[in-house]
Design a protein around this nucleic acid. Structure first.
Lengths: 253, 253
DNA sequence: GCAATAGTGTCTTTTAGACATTATGTG
DNA sequence: CACATAATGTCTAAAAGACACTATTGC
């Protein structure tokens, strides 16, 4: 029988790539209401990569699943509470962590409410939402800019591989992979509804959808496309300006 | 600084759910040429679950990635050589392995050639391709039958969760999750081409596609649909019966 | 010729996009 | 009233499916 004591074992970590969108649109200079895609990062409080930004995450403990570990760290480090998470990949290249043999299980999450990162609750403290701006420079080059109030981080990719960037560990690569999966899940599946309350107006669905996928359609056509996935209710969105909108819910399929 | 020696660590394993399709159709009773979807399983040679079937897999070693570990085990246990693998999920429920704290990173693979599992090369020896027959019984119940020459294993699922079945560990659940992802990858992406040689006839593409997705289209319409993803060459499939078919290749996009 | 597969074309249905039009709210 | 958003409808283009028809091979 296999004796697990006979072999050296790695440390196992869970890291989460958490995307979010503000519930309230932030007014831009021209008065347009604009929502932005955000990414949750935490400032490291210890070596290695002291003071640099990294994905929220931490080590797996006994008697919990790796998903529970991801949730626990999100709660502790950023006050984000049990979002829907999807498996992304396992990062295990030798040397990826200077502390030793550490395997990271990465997860993708999209959360509805922009839970303000509490700055004083527990260990990591320095959790922040960064504005996420992904740009295709050419067919082989892409650039990601992460901006918060006082800091801006730029990452570059060539053929989908990180070529330069200032995040801890291999987190720049993990974020790239996560964004590809995010777009895929929103376009081909129903991940976008993780951002929605149980009842919502069609226009509240469209903005996040297009911000994430990088597409644009007219409100009329977007409505038609979504009617295969949502159904109308008898309720109305009273609090809005202009004409009141019917509220919809996701179809159970 | 975090000292990895201070904490207990799990063993980490890689398990692979490898699907395959015979290159040669097997003649059925009515003379129809029929190809079947197959799944690679190995008979366990030690406790726990001695003599039961499980997914090929094994433990992560130092100085390799978890993907390399999956490839190494596939080569050692079944003679399958470095197929294209996709991350599936991480299985880490406490108690999932009676030997102790063991986390399994599961991968999905689809291989072109049905490499005959060599029965005498190395440790696991007893690798076998099982015919994979997935059936939806009702909206909540599904059944999977795995059949090889001398053995048949039936697994049942309720709402996507394993309810009964005779595989080692939680491998019955991993296989379910893998099959969902397989269908998704074949329908929405290009995983089907992992089964194809660099040049192939359209009809050689259709059979595997429909076996995996559970769909059916006429050969004419299938051709039209695929012409967005493949391009014709000047070569012909000489060895076939009946009219010779033009050979196609996957478009580089 | 016949059976079987390869390949083209035609018609229909479905889905997506462009865009006109009407409805209903605020200021 | 102007103006913004909500909702419906109309036309068009693209994709998917049904199916008729021709082409080429082996027997």
């Amino acid at each position: 029988m296999y004796q697990i004591e006979d072999y050296e074992r790695p440390s196992v970590a869970a890291d989460a790539v958490v995307f979010g969108i503000d519930t309230e649109p932030t007014a831009s200079s021209k008065g347009l209401q604009q929502r932005k895609l955000k990414l949750l990062l935490v400032r490291r409080g210890e070596e290695p990569f002291l003071h640099m930004f990294s994905l929220p995450g931490g080590f797996l403990r006994k008697n919990e699943t790796i998903q529970q570990a991801a949730w626990r760290e999100l709660r502790e480090e950023a006050g984000v509470n049990s979002p829907h998470i999807l498996p992304l990949d396992v990062y295990s290249a030798p040397g990826r962590d200077p502390r030793g043999w550490i395997v990271s299980c990465a997860f993708l999450a999209l959360t509805r409410t922009v839970v303000l990162a509490t700055d004083a609750l527990s260990d990591a403290v320095d959790a922040q939402w960064f504005e996420f701006d992904f740009q295709t420079l050419s067919s082989h080059e892409e650039q990601l800019t992460l901006s918060a109030s006082s800091i801006s981080i730029t990452l570059r990719y060539q053929d989908g591989k990180l070529s330069e960037g200032g995040l801890a560990f291999d987190h720049g690569q993990i974020i790239y992979d996560a964004f590809q999966k995010l777009r895929d899940e929103v376009m081909h599946h129903d991940l976008i509804f993780e951002l929605m309350p149980s009842l919502f107006a069609v226009s509240d669905l469209q903005q996040p959808y297009e911000i994430i996928t990088g597409t644009h359609t007219s409100p009329q056509n977007f409505r038609k496309k979504m009617l295969t996935k949502i159904e109308e209710t008898e309720l109305f969105n009273e609090a809005a300006a202009h004409r009141t909108a019917k509220l919809y819910r996701k179809k159970q399929q």
